[in-house]
Design a protein around this nucleic acid. Structure first.
Lengths: 254, 254
DNA sequence: CGCTACTGTTCCGCAATACAGAACGCCATT
DNA sequence: AATGGCGTTCTGTATTGCGGAACAGTAGCG
């Protein structure tokens, strides 16, 4: 890897080794996972711990992520404070729709969930703030892609797009049509394209430069997001996205 | 610094150079700020960018934080998913109190805001998720400290505690009395101890091992959190914290 | 247009740093 | 007591990360 500092790369790989399934990891396990010597891993952890990115559990002598990662990460999600500005609109959308709602942004050919408010339903889409999802088969993703520049969209359509369900669109011609529909309708629908039984509707947020900077979406089980309910939800999500766009100094283009 | 890898330390210092005031920074500026050569900084940025922790704005050739930091940071805030479990209680507390509410946790002698839901009031406490505040003069902080082990509290009280307002308690004897009051009342009050004009009430969240793992708080201007309103807010915050504790498998100790 | 100033990027020699292996200290199990 | 496993410390050395210089590009000015 040209120009990449190996020790920095290793340190970041350490950070990325932690997960929901593995919140706490020991030196030896990290050593095996990363293919580095134990003393190397120990030094990396010591360096990360010195600034609060990881912390050691004194009872188990294992390490977990520290709050410094959260602090820096919160700044990254700020991104011109989109998240803060959109929060009240996300909230009122959840209250109106009575379903879980998400705020997502485009990053490296994927959508990243940067906020989420869960409904009170016991049965709902599993998602995690900070996680990613594909662009081509999620409502959030499609409503982010639809307003990208044509050359970007063509580059995107040239990538291998994975099929998740029989409904997933992977052919460029199909997706071009879908994106055109989204631009006309001003919202996107995921009809079990990403996961069977899961439907979402989403609409884009525009900022002052008329660019889509995020997307708001309603997600839930297909049994609840039924065909007679979807037009109402689409209208809600469009209204919330338009209101959030105005708060961002933008307008939905006519 | 013994045992700390210099290049890793430098990379983390780069990450911490970004702020709300400076979301985008150039190589030369970072070089001056950090006291490192430009090519060193460039290499650090390249390494961080390779894994998505920073990204380069191609229009300005300057760098900003990338979403990888957010992804890793979101895991750090997960912390046994306290944040997710507490979210609905935080929300209903905001709706009941009609003031901004926070969720905070103890880290390195400070409270870290890990969640926040703002009220619709145009005038409210300024805070940011991911930021820190002192323990001894905030309601969130005090309600976290009050249930720590005695030896920890004594160590804490031996630290130099800064005075922010004429109301700030900094003397160990004063703070011991205050913490005892909090344990009896089961909530903490910040009566303009951190900032003039700002009041907060907060109550602790207990988990299944009877330890305080977070704290819920209501914050607002003193003009709104008036003395006749505070008992009601204290009751609300206690109820919400108790309910969130139960969701965490804990109980408020009697 | 040429010059200056400033930026981010690339190149290169070399000293310092990061590396891995071995040893150590501690704990739990047999 | 011996063994096994862990995290931590130590050490020699190869390699890596460093800074300075040069480069490439852009903007502003006379």
């Amino acid at each position: 890897m040209a120009g990449v500092l190996r020790s920095v790369n290793n340190a970041l790989a350490v950070l990325e080794s932690f997960s929901v399934e593995r919140p706490e990891i020991g030196v030896t396990e990290l050593s095996q996972t990363l293919g580095l010597g134990k003393s190397t891993v120990h030094r990396l952890l010591t360096s990360l711990a010195a600034r609060g990115y990881v912390r050691k559990n004194p009872e188990t002598d294992r390490y977990c992520l520290g709050f410094k990662a959260f602090e820096v990460g919160s700044l990254a999600a700020g991104r011109g404070a989109i998240r803060d500005i959109a929060a009240p609109f996300l909230r009122s959308l959840m209250l109106a729709a009575k379903e879980t709602v998400h705020l997502g942004v485009l990053d490296e050919w994927e959508v990243v969930y940067i906020d989420k408010i869960e409904s009170d339903h016991p049965f709902q889409m599993y998602s995690r703030v900070g996680r990613r999802a594909p662009l081509h088969c999620t409502a959030l993703g499609k409503s982010l892609v639809a307003w990208e520049p044509d050359d970007w969209i063509e580059r995107f359509l040239r990538r291998r797009l994975r099929s998740y369900t029989p409904s997933t669109l992977t052919e460029p011609a199909d997706l071009r049509r879908e994106l055109a529909k989204i631009r006309t309708a001003r919202y996107a629908l995921d009809g079990e394209e990403f996961a069977l039984g899961l439907k979402c509707v989403a609409a884009p947020l525009f900022d002052h430069s008329r660019r889509v900077v995020a997307s708001l979406g309603i997600a839930g089980p297909a049994v609840r997001l039924s065909n007679d309910r979807l037009p109402r939800l689409a209208a809600l999500v469009r209204e919330s996205a338009a209101a959030a766009s105005r708060a961002l100094g933008g307008e939905v283009p006519v």
